[in-house]
């Protein structure tokens, strides 16, 4: 007996408003793109409206996982790209706690710079 093949998967994207980005909301199986739109409507938009809905055949998507050299990995060895060295936060906290004047803070920072404190 020949078993029927599964219908293709379509990824569903919804644009909630005219100026918002289309966001992935899920996927459906359907026999055609038009059918996929109908199925998406029932599966994801029964209680809410959308400005537009996109369906994209899963097969049309190129995945970075298949090309490891371009897959973005956590930049462990790229600390130079991470923001750091901005240690004003504790000073701000103290400024607020002690009700210092901004001149006092500036003086303190200048002293720190000159190695006075």
């Amino acid at each position: 007996m020949e078993f029927p093949r599964d219908t293709p998967v379509y990824e569903v994207f919804a644009q909630r408003e005219a100026l918002s980005f289309p966001t992935h909301v899920g996927s459906v199986r359907a026999s055609s793109p038009e059918m996929a739109l109908q199925m998406a409507r029932e599966a994801y938009f029964r209680r809410e409206a959308a400005y537009d809905v996109w369906v994209v055949p899963e097969s049309a998507i190129t995945r970075a996982r298949e090309y490891p050299e371009v897959l973005p990995v956590a930049p462990e060895e790229k600390t130079y790209r991470l923001p750091g060295g901005y240690d004003n936060a504790p000073l701000w906290k103290r400024f607020k706690a002690e009700a210092q004047t901004i001149e006092q803070v500036a003086e303190e920072m200048a002293a720190k710079k000159e190695g006075r404190s």
């Binding site: 219908t7 459906v28 199986r29 359907a30 109908q38 199925m39 029932e42 599966a43 029964r46």
Partner: peptide, 11 residues
């Protein structure tokens, strides 16, 4: 026949 149609038909 499939989950998608099940939802659509019920609706």
């Amino acid at each position: 026949p499939d989950l998608e149609e099940d939802l659509a038909m019920s609706s």
